[in-house]
Amino acid sequence: MRGGRKALLKVIILGDSGVGKTSLMNQYVNNKFSTQYKATIGADFLTKEVLVEERSVTMQIWDTAGQERFQSLGVAFYRGADCCALVYDVNNVKSFENLDSWRDEFLLQANPRDPENFPFVVIGNKVDVEESKRQVTQKRAMAWCQQKGNIPYFETSAKEGINVEQAFFTIAKNSLKQEADVELYSDFPDPIKIDGDTSVAKSAGCEC
């Protein structure tokens, strides 16, 4: 039943304002780059058809707004996500430090079945900028990814199209794998309910 069906993957892109989420999505979907993207209001939506292991897959990509103010909308966008790409700017240490809270917030609001194994991908964008401005080393980023359960890590340049395809391909592949696992689970007559609140801390998002 599963083999013939066309897969639909819902992908969420998260990260601080200005790290290049919109640029990444547009580079991936349209092979275009512009410095004139406006700040995203709410979330933008694009789709792309890809072939993963001989299977035709439609990726529905939600490029979300980075400003904290928009996080209350998260729940509308995060629910039912198959994969989440956490994006930071390698030249902006704050955007890297915020990955923790983006991840927590996502798990909290998306409430996936198996938060421990939910497929994330981490993307360090803007590697085209000169080395002297870089604030987060590859080593540091990879250590964080490892600590969070071996999240795949990519360094990209949306501007120059470096590694973007690879990152999104991994996203598609891992989401499919997750989907397959989930379906396997749901074949059991009485599935074990895994609570979403394990190890998920509420981020300090209140702005009172």
């Binding site: 209001i41 709410g42 979330a43 909308l73 509308a76």
Partner: peptide, 17 residues
């Protein structure tokens, strides 16, 4: 199709986008 998916932007920035 939730209104958040499209009308959040329509309404909050008064159709400018």
């Amino acid at each position: 199709i939730s209104p958040v998916f499209f009308s959040f932007r329509w309404i909050s920035v008064l159709f400018t986008q």
